[in-house]
């Protein structure tokens, strides 16, 4: 048993030092012998045990005595710990690759590959993203949500659908949005955009978006791109928004006019209510096929959700 642990540990250490490589080779020989029910003739296990005891004895005689007495059972325990931790490590790597978090999709907690939790955050540092503390990933749904009135960019025939809930003022939405655009374009997916304002009462941009889309669904996406890329401190400045509208080729005045319309206000309220039906609790929230991804993820995670592990082959 000890040989197996030693082999694994020494193989890893062997990457860095030749003497450990030699020991790893001896350990492997020992493992192979043990597997075929022959004794380990190289004396490898004895050698390692003596070395370990020699190390422990200088720190604690009692520890060395204990280790000497229970060496074999301790080896077993270490073996299971090793197997367990290896399983979790492999699982962590897999989950990190596929979901951006070692602990699974939308799960927080420490992840060595993402020590600052970049991939699991969704509330902005400046709290500029709407978040509810009561959110639960499991409640996120598109069922019963009428997506009919929202801006939609058609994809290929039989295209898979991506639904993006985001806010122009939210840093994380701004981070995720271009990736989603790129993704939808690359794989010909259908993209539905659900705007949800940072502060619910300032739904001015929601109205602008609604009116712009109504006026020209094609140009809307250009405007949307500009809104996500623009200096966010100026988004509440109507003059600035007008400039963006113009830049996207809209009749800014007529969009403005529409945005202030009482009817628009009513529709937008309905839409925001519709968005809330998804039970989303943070932006961005992206629905791809059956999955809801909360917070910005690496591009690969969105791509895997859309196209599977082998997305890069397609």
């Amino acid at each position: 048993m000890f040989c197996i642990i030693a082999f694994i540990v020494l193989s890893i250490l062997g990457i860095f030092s030749a003497s450990n490589r030699q020991l790893a080779r001896e350990a492997l020989d020992c493992v192979l012998r043990r597997v075929t029910l022959r004794p380990c003739t190289t004396g490898f296990d004895e050698k390692m045990k003596a070395k370990i005891l020699g190390y422990v004895i200088t720190r604690s005689e009692a520890g060395a005595r204990f280790l000497n007495r229970y060496f074999e059972p301790l080896s077993w325990i270490f073996f299971f710990l090793l197997v367990g931790s290896t399983f979790f490590a492999v699982r962590g790597v897999y989950l990190y690759y596929t979901t951006g978090s070692c602990n699974g999709l939308n799960q927080g907690g420490f992840c060595v590959f993402d020590p600052t939790g970049q991939n699991t955050q969704f509330s902005g540092v400046d709290e500029s993203c709407p978040v509810s503390s009561e959110g639960n990933v499991l409640n996120l749904t598109l069922e019963g949500v009428d997506l009919g009135g929202f801006p939609k960019l058609a994809g290929n025939p039989n295209a898979k659908s991506i639904v993006f809930i985001g806010s122009y003022g939210c840093d994380y939405s701004r981070k995720a949005y271009p990736m989603i655009r790129r993704l939808a374009q690359k794989y010909g997916a259908e993209l539905v955009f659900l705007y949800y304002p940072v502060k619910e009462h300032s739904d001015y941009l929601a109205k602008v978006g609604y009116c712009a889309y109504k006026q020209d669904p094609q140009k809307f996406w250009d405007l949307n791109d500009r809104l996500f890329a623009a200096d966010k401190t100026r988004l509440e400045d109507e003059a600035f928004v007008q400039e963006l509208l113009k830049a996207s080729g809209f009749n800014a005045q007529s969009v403005q006019f529409c945005a202030k319309d009482f009817q628009t206000e009513w529709v937008v309220k309905q839409q925001l209510a519709e968005v809330r039906k998804t039970n989303f609790y943070g932006t961005p929230t992206v629905f791809i096929r059956n999955e809801a991804l909360v917070g910005p993820k690496p591009y690969r995670v969105y791509a895997i959700a859309l196209e599977g592990l082998l997305y890069w082959l397609k």
Partner: peptide, 14 residues
């Protein structure tokens, strides 16, 4: 006590 074990431990310890 195995003589090799003693030698290895002496080496490791001191």
């Amino acid at each position: 006590i195995d003589h090799h074990r003693i030698a290895l431990m002496l080496d490791q310890m001191a």
